[in-house]
Each structure stands twice: as structure tokens, then as C-alpha cells.
Design a protein around this nucleic acid. Sequence first.
DNA 1: CGTTCCTTTGAAACCAATCAATAATGGTGG
DNA 2: CCACCATTATTGATTGGTTTCAAAGGAACG
Lengths: 248, 248
Amino acid sequence: MDVTISNPLVDRLNHYVELTTAERVVLAGLQAERRKMKAGEQVVVETRASDEMFVLQSGWLYASTVLEGGARQILRIHHPGNIVNVSCLAWSRVAATITSATAAVVSPFHRKALSDIFAHHPRLAALLFGVATMENVALCDRLKSLGRTDGRARIATLLLELLSRRDLTEGQAGADVLDLFLSQSEIADAVGLTKVHVNRLLREMTDTGLIQREGRHVNIPDKAALVAISGFVNRHADLATDWYPTQT
Amino acid sequence: MDVTISNPLVDRLNHYVELTTAERVVLAGLQAERRKMKAGEQVVVETRASDEMFVLQSGWLYASTVLEGGARQILRIHHPGNIVNVSCLAWSRVAATITSATAAVVSPFHRKALSDIFAHHPRLAALLFGVATMENVALCDRLKSLGRTDGRARIATLLLELLSRRDLTEGQAGADVLDLFLSQSEIADAVGLTKVHVNRLLREMTDTGLIQREGRHVNIPDKAALVAISGFVNRHADLATDWYPTQT
DNA sequence: CGTTCCTTTGAAACCAATCAATAATGGTGG
DNA sequence: CCACCATTATTGATTGGTTTCAAAGGAACG
């Protein structure tokens, strides 16, 4: 097996399926270019024309939309190995602004590159479909969180979601310390609360010992307690692969 | 062109791409079986094992999850031509209960049927990916609605979303009368409010002339007014198809 | 023709938003 | 290295949208 081609995207996909060398080569082809971003820069901007997608190599990005009144909703938070601006497969205009939460490196590629994958690497296409489906369900979980739970549970869900996604790409699985690269204002925009209320809830969770904070570091001494108040289920651990076509 | 094969799914996909006869045949193969359901029946139930997907032929379905406290969140509302329980492509357990809101007809098929599509009909696979992406963005719109708008706007968004999806499959585009096959309690579970509050808001919208109601029929005299308070954008009208591989 | 579900309405309690202001933090340049 | 600035975090008082609790009227169904 070819271990020379290794990067966050390959590692993540290889976690679900043993990738062939040919598949690794194709994935590497998507990541030929590299673009460095400082924290707070915008990768793509809502409503602007774009037919490019990006592989996130390092750092955190988030997708957001702004309402007329100026309020913002953060839709997703992206970790290394994620493909972002996938909505360009449906429209030639950007559906959500993508911003870097930290310094980051992205690899842009044209959506037509996927044409080749669908035509010649059906198993890889199926895998990408599977991953997209997984993120879809994760989105449904967030919908449940925003629609039917209170502030405490929403924040708990966010923390656990970030923890489980971090564990996918960085090998620190099990270590219940999270580097939270989001300001309280950004957390608020992610969970649908105000930054003031997020601050109060974080304070409360800190005071009651649910979490411990030191700057960016959030320590979660009792993950089960957070799961109890949020009903969180980890959607990213496994993936059904038995329906995939055989590799070419 | 083969007009003998026509059904909601084919019609919907053909709206975006001129399907070949071969592609129509494959899609017809997914819909060989037919299962009739009464209103209120469950197609699949959360956490149970399942590796089947369904093409919705007629009627409305909705996907929902139940929280520990008994609260329910309706995640999506499905119209004829939709493929449901797609999450079985990621796991062998059902992610969300699917219930019929009306009498309905569904065509079950095993997820392995998609294997053949990915292997031999790459353009169709790409189209399915495009549609999935579209629904993904629609989900993000709902997230924005639940996270950052008040009850009035959420209900307006729901009505406009249902109207634009209805127009996709049923040829009544433009007619601003909606058959709303959801109880106020179900609307509440969809928009993240209580049924009592939904009732008050519907009453208010009726009293101020924003909508007119007669039983199931909801008439929307001024669609622009609803768009104004909700910021709704129709995501289903068009689809980028230029990146698809050539048909086989 | 009763039962059941759905809709409607009222009053009180509550979670979260808003308004307002003060620490604390982090980065920058002199 | 420290003063300075901008951003972020924190806290209080007040307001308001929504929920909860409670109950009655309508519509649908067998």
C-alpha cells in the first residue's frame, strides 16, 4: 500500500475504506494547489459566483449566512480533511460565506474535477456520497438541537460535536480537552443565542464544574454529563460501505 | 425520447437534465415495488435496522426525531419524487423516523441498487449528488430560520418552502394556494415552537390578511409579503449540471 | 352520536434578548 | 518594554417572545 500519499482528506476517507493507490492519486490531484489564509479571512462570499471547492488542510473554517437585520447564523464548522463549498455542485453562486476561524491552508479545485471521479472512480464517488450523507444527518442533529433544546443543551451539543470531529482528523481521540478556536460571539451565532447569554451559560457550566476553561482550552472532565444534558450521538465514528461498487 | 416511463422521480430529475432512456429504465427499476400507506403510519422507525430507501410516489411524508423529554423535531417534509431514508447510505440503522402525513405510496428498494448506478450511470449518480447537495442547503436555510428568526418568520419560511417544493412535482406552479397536510402540532414540531404559539401566530397572520385559511387550504395573496418577513430564497428552481460526466 | 383529535383562547411563569457598562485580553507600534 | 488600541469576556437590570398550564369550542371519524 502506498503510504507516500497521506494528508487529512486521505486519512479521513481511509478511515472508512481502504483506499487504493489510484484513488489516493486522484484525491492528491484535488490538493495540488495550496492557499494560506490568516484568521478571519473569507474563502468564498455568499451570493458571489464560484465553481470552486476546497480541501481544508489545516485550521478551522466556518460557513455562515447573514440575515437582513445583520444577525448571523453559523451553519457548519469545518475541520482538516473536510471538503468545503460543496454547494457549488448545485449552483454557480456561493450559498454560504466561508471564513477562517484560525490561520488555515486550503487547496482549491474546480468542480469539474469531480466529473472524473464519478466517471472513473465510482467507489470513491460513493464514498463521497456517504460522507455527504453523514454530514447531512449531523446537520439534522443541529436542527434538533436548535429547534427543541435550551441554551445549555445547545452549547453542550456543540462542544461534543467539535470534540468528535476533532478526533476524526487529529489523533487525540479520547483526550477530552478541546482547543476551542471560536469566540463566544461565534459560538452564539452557531447555537442561535446571543453572545451575552452564551457567556452566562459558559460561566454557569464552569462554576458547576461541567467544564473547565483556560483561554482557548476547554477541558471536559465528565463527557457523560454533557451527553446526558444534550442527548448527543456521535455520527462520525462509522460508515456503512457494503453498498459501494467494487473499486476499478 | 421514451415517454412511457414517467413518474414523480423521473419528472423531477428530468427537470434538471434530459434523462436518457437507459437512465429512465434504471430509475424505473428502483420503483418496481409499491407499498400503500395510510395517514399516520411509520415507514421506518428511528434506531431500527434498515438498509432500504424509498421513492415517494404520492402523498406527504415527514422525517422526525424524538428527544428524551418526549419533544419532537420534524427534520424534513417529503413530497412525491423524493428519495427518503437516504441516511441508510451511511449507517445500517435508521437516523430519523419517517411518518406519512397523508395517505401515501412508496417504492422500497435496497441500498445496493445504488451500487449499479454509481458503477454504470455516473451522470445519474452525479445528478443524485447534486440533488442531495441542494437538499443540504435547504436544510441550512432551515437552520438559519430556527436559529435566528422569530416565530412569524419561521412559519412564513415553512409555507414558502412547502409551496416551492410542491411546485417542483405538481404542475401548479404559480398558484399560491397550498394544501397544508400538517396539523398545527406538526407545524410546531417543524419550526421549533409550541402548538399553542403556532396557533396564535397563524391566527394573527390570518387576521392581518397575510394568509387566508379554509380547512387544509392556505391561500397566500401576497407571496412577496411573506418573503419580506422571512428572507426566503427558493433553492429548488435550478441546478448546476455542467460538471457532470457525460452519459454512458 | 359519542369519542377523539385538532383548534382556539386566557393567564401566569420563564428563558433568552436587549440595553448598558465595566473588566480582561491580545496584538501593535513607539 | 510598556502604553495604546481593539477585541473579547463579564456582569446587572429590564424587557419581551414563548412556554406552560388550563380549559372550552369545532371538526372529523367510526
